[in-house]
Amino acid sequence: MLIPHPLLGPRDAQEFTYLGDASLLNRPDGMAEGALAAFCDYVYLRDNPAGVHRELWFHEQGDRSWLVVTRNTVTHEILGAELARDVALRRQK
């Protein structure tokens, strides 16, 4: 697989390591009501879709940036990639 790095262009997926569902960016508030249950869901439960999946890839043998890659888990087709930093900053606004 070639991952279209937003800064560096297409790069071999071998340079990356994988973390999983991009919802891991949405870490629950540990001080909020029901934090225990929220963290249990966050740590252990996954949507695990067959089809389009937004997921975190780390460019370890590259520029060390985290990407949010949109990929189809049935065909392995990669539909897009953006810096996880941009995704997180956009969400904060």
């Binding site: 262009g9 790069r11 071998q14």
Partner: peptide, 17 residues
């Protein structure tokens, strides 16, 4: 290395495996 050698022109630098 698994990079596109033809696009790795003078003035390029990258990290890879």
């Amino acid at each position: 290395v698994n990079i596109d050698a033809s696009r790795f022109v003078p003035g390029s630098a990258l990290r890879t495996g």
